[in-house]
């Protein structure tokens, strides 16, 4: 790993004012993404993972929203840039892939036009034949058959998997340094999901683009990422290499999540390991640790768990945010299986 990361996020907070109260969708989130690396952000609904992704490109909008903290891309704080300077970085340095490829493509223009637009925005002087070649090449690269013919088709004429390929082609047309993929396979069938994940991995290897993969699916995380950030209630609760997270989780939430997924994957019947309760509402976050009401390791009445928000601290090869002491967190996994 190099010294200056490609992306450095520090103390990112995003809050929205709603009629029901202030929603702290993202709270004090910090992480790095290095060049060429694949980082996964995993979390359930309301964990703040998508808001984080949008904040990285300053895409969250609305008068009732406020963002604080710093997002450094190659050492430049995006927060300090003008809207126009940020615009020039969108799609060129950082590109995005969304969950539902049908709604992400503009239904009124041919897919060729849309890929061309992504290129032209950052190459205003490009001539027609050049743009055409770029479009054909990038559609071909993501596996659209007969790109010369298909570039004139409209989004609704493609299947879900093909549409997602087109969105990926659009994202890669300017060879960005970072690709943010927000639930890129959630709307797709499992056989198509496998194709898309393979495509993302292949492209990452070919072009050295760093990938920030956001998903709720631990299987997808395990198969594609190197480093994992686990989010819960708008905060990062654990961060470690993918092996550490899956083999030696140090946060009770990660452990619980793995438990439910693992017992689902394993054969045979018998009670599944569920985490009791449901993910918290961001308007009424519990005091102290957001996971406390569902946590089986909670330290009890009057303890720190109910009064102070835990911060990330180093445990083993990773970090986690929990009031249990470090030694206990290292033994977390044995506490369950034993």
């Amino acid at each position: 790993m190099t010294d200056t990361p490609l992306l450095r996020v520090r103390d990112l907070c995003v809050s929205f004012r709603t009629p029901d109260g202030v929603v702290r969708a993202v709270d004090s989130v910090s992480f790095d993404v290095h060049a060429g690396e694949t980082v996964g952000i995993v979390g359930e609904s309301g964990s703040g993972k998508s808001v984080t992704a949008n904040a990285l490109m300053r895409l969250n909008s609305g008068a009732q929203m406020s963002t604080t903290g710093s997002i450094l891309l190659d050492g430049v704080d995006l927060g300090s840039l003008s809207e126009e300077e940020v615009r020039l970085r969108r799609g060129r340095d950082i590109a995005m892939v969304f969950q539902d490829p049908l709604s992400a493509l503009n239904p009124f223009y041919s897919v060729g036009d849309q890929v061309a637009e992504a290129y032209r925005v950052h190459h205003p002087k490009a001539r027609r034949p050049e743009v055409r070649d770029v479009v054909v090449e990038s559609l071909g690269r993501v596996g659209i058959p007969e790109p010369v013919k298909r570039m004139y088709s409209f989004p609704h004429e493609f299947s879900g998997g093909m549409r997602q390929r087109i969105v990926i082609a659009m994202a890669l047309v300017n060879s960005p340094r970072l690709l943010i993929a927000d639930e890129p396979t959630t709307a797709l069938d499992v056989t198509v999901q496998a194709q898309i994940l393979e495509l993302i991995q292949r492209i990452q290897q070919e072009s050295g683009t760093a990938v920030l993969l956001i998903t709720h699916d631990l299987g997808v995380i395990a198969e594609t990422t190197e480093r994992v950030i686990v989010m819960y209630g708008g905060r990062v609760v654990e961060e470690a290499s993918v092996e550490s997270v899956f083999e030696q989780p140090t946060h009770p939430y990660t452990l619980g999540l793995l438990g439910s997924v693992r017992s689902l994957d394993s054969a045979g019947r018998g009670s599944l390991r569920a985490i009791p309760g449901s993910p918290p509402s961001l308007i009424h976050l519990p005091a102290g640790c957001a996971f406390r009401p569902r946590c089986r390791f909670e330290l009890g009445e009057g303890s720190l768990c109910g009064s102070s928000v835990p911060t990330l601290s180093v445990v083993g090869r990773g970090k986690s945010a929990c009031h249990l002491d470090v030694a206990e967190r290292e033994r977390l996994i044995t506490a369950v299986d034993g």
């Binding site: 895409l59 809207e83 615009r87 970085r89 799609g91 969304f98 637009e117 992504a118 925005v121």
Partner: peptide, 26 residues
């Protein structure tokens, strides 16, 4: 609030272009 407008923005399309070409059109 449609996704494709957000993606247009993420592509780096100018807001004014976005409003005419994406939003008004639709």
């Amino acid at each position: 609030s449609e996704e494709f407008v957000r993606l247009g923005l993420a592509k780096g399309v100018r807001r004014s272009v976005l409003i005419v070409k994406y939003v008004l059109r639709a």
